[in-house]
């Protein structure tokens, strides 16, 4: 009889990710990126033009973007990777329900986001000292980033379940992120009518806009709260789909039949 102990799956998957897996290497690379960016923001004359709150905002945005990227990379490998390595059969034989496998894998992938968040904290502290921005930025990153990471990590897991090839799954995940990140690089986008709609629909664009409104424009947390609708809806819908369709998604070969 299969049990619903998703925590057992999550623990085992986290172990594989962090002990001997690629988790530490990815986080090490992430810290190198943040170090280079923080040092440049503090020393480079062109970048040091940034107001201190903007430097904190830039760190939050890079931390969130790359943290979500790494979460999608991990989740996109979760099922298709096991299929390719031939280890999925033994996982299906364990006395754990298929729904628990999906939820456990999503939780394990989310630990990548939490690790990125923890690594970001010292950089936020050093850049935000004196403007009371570091604590607020950390809390914002935790709340908003977790919503985005959960939603898009779940989408990565869906790609992984629907494809037999790890390459296809990763390519789909990265393409999705590229499509979602590209509009955020247009600074005037939220100020046009259609641009505001695109920003609000895009979970990453709306999350980054909400964060910058609080950190840079010093709005209060409730002023632009409607921008969080997209990340909340994506996180809820994707998690719901994974839980409901979990037993049909976790199959030895991809597809729903």
């Amino acid at each position: 009889m299969s049990s619903n102990r998703w925590d057992v799956v999550a623990e085992q998957e986290s172990r594989e990710l962090w002990i001997g897996g690629r988790g530490p290497v990815l986080v090490f690379g992430f810290s190198l990126l943040l170090s280079a960016m923080t040092y440049l923001a503090a020393t480079n004359r062109a970048m040091n033009f940034l107001e201190q709150r903007e430097a904190v905002n830039l760190t939050v945005q890079v931390g969130l973007a790359v943290g979500v990227l790494l979460t999608v990379v991990v989740s996109a490998d979760a099922i298709s990777g096991e299929r390719e390595r031939g280890t999925f059969e033994s996982l299906l034989l364990t006395p754990v329900s298929r729904r628990a496998i999906v939820v456990g894998k999503l939780v394990a992938a989310s630990t990548m986001w939490l690790a990125c968040l923890i690594v970001t904290l010292p950089y936020l502290w050093v850049l935000g000292r004196g403007v009371a921005g570091a604590g607020q930025a950390a809390l914002l990153t935790l709340v908003v980033g977790t919503l985005v990471a959960l939603g898009l990590g779940g989408v990565g897991l869906l790609f992984s379940a629907w494809t037999n090839s790890n390459k296809t799954s990763l390519a789909c995940g990265l393409l999705l992120l590229l499509v979602l990140f590209a509009p955020t690089q247009l600074p005037a986008l939220p100020k046009t009518g259609i641009g505001e709609v695109i920003t609000r629909v895009n979970p990453i664009g709306s999350a980054l806009h909400y964060i910058s409104q609080i950190l840079v424009s010093r709005r209060n947390w409730t002023h632009d709260l409607s921008y969080l609708a997209s990340p909340v809806v994506v996180a809820l819908v994707v998690t719901g789909v994974l839980i409901v369709a979990g037993p049909r998604l976790v199959r030895l070969t991809a597809g729903l039949r």
Partner: peptide
């Protein structure tokens, strides 16, 4: 504006990757 404190950012920029790199290496 006073520029960001370079002296304080450098130790953090070095210490965090160094600690993570060492932990990764020791684990392996």
């Amino acid at each position: 504006r006073e520029t960001l404190d370079t002296g304080a950012t450098l130790p953090v920029a070095i210490a965090v990757p160094a600690a993570l790199g060492a932990a990764t290496l020791i684990g392996r």
